[in-house]
């Protein structure tokens, strides 16, 4: 996992729960990295999972919820790092460009970066389906990112998963539907 994500998580925890919470997570996790994460470098995925799990325990929240919240928070940080979107770009346009634009930006900063693969389907004008394929299985984090994007694009959506690897399904399929008022 890229250090930038760890930095984002540090920022998320510090803002939401305070610097002391972050320090507690670092103390409890006892990693050799000791909380020193360079944005451009890569770190063990398990470190992030452990940190999030510890946060859930400390704050008594469910892991999917924590990941979703972090994704929602992190989108803003991520969005500022990529080239500005065209003025007429919609949320769905943006989501469709994630694999070809945003992940390419990630590859630019580190060619060896592992990015999830996203495959799209549009059953109708108000719905987009994303098949999330990643060995990290962070589909809830992806859900949060989508919700963050919806907030940025000022487009209310319902985000659900029609199938999920955490539920024993073969794929994680995330369904994004425009809310009725759209």
């Amino acid at each position: 996992m890229k250090g930038a994500v760890f930095n984002g998580f540090e920022q998320f925890v510090t803002e939401r729960f305070g610097l002391s919470q972050w320090q507690q997570l670092l103390d409890k996790s006892n990693f050799t990295t000791a909380g020193i994460y360079l944005a451009s470098d890569f770190y063990d995925d398990n470190e992030l999972v452990t940190l999030i799990t510890l946060l859930c325990q400390a704050q008594h929240i469910e892991l999917p919820e924590a990941l979703r919240d972090f994704g929602y928070y992190f989108f803003d940080i991520l969005y500022r790092k990529i080239p500005p979107a065209p003025a007429d770009q919609t949320l769905f346009d943006f989501l469709r460009s994630v694999d070809k634009v945003i992940h390419v930006q990630v590859k630019k900063t580190d060619p060896q970066a592992y990015t999830p693969a996203l495959f799209y389907d549009s059953p109708d004008d108000k719905t987009i389906l994303l098949r999330y394929v990643s060995q990290r299985k962070l589909c809830f984090f992806a859900e949060g990112l989508i919700l963050g994007a919806a907030q940025t694009f000022n487009t209310p959506v319902d985000v659900t998963q029609t199938s999920c690897q955490h539920q024993g399904d073969k794929d994680c399929i995330i369904k994004v539907e425009l809310c009725q008022q759209n």
Partner: peptide, 12 residues
């Protein structure tokens, strides 16, 4: 970090 990213982007 920005310098490193810039360098990587150039290489990319």
């Amino acid at each position: 970090e920005h310098k490193i990213e810039a360098f990587n982007a150039e290489q990319f």
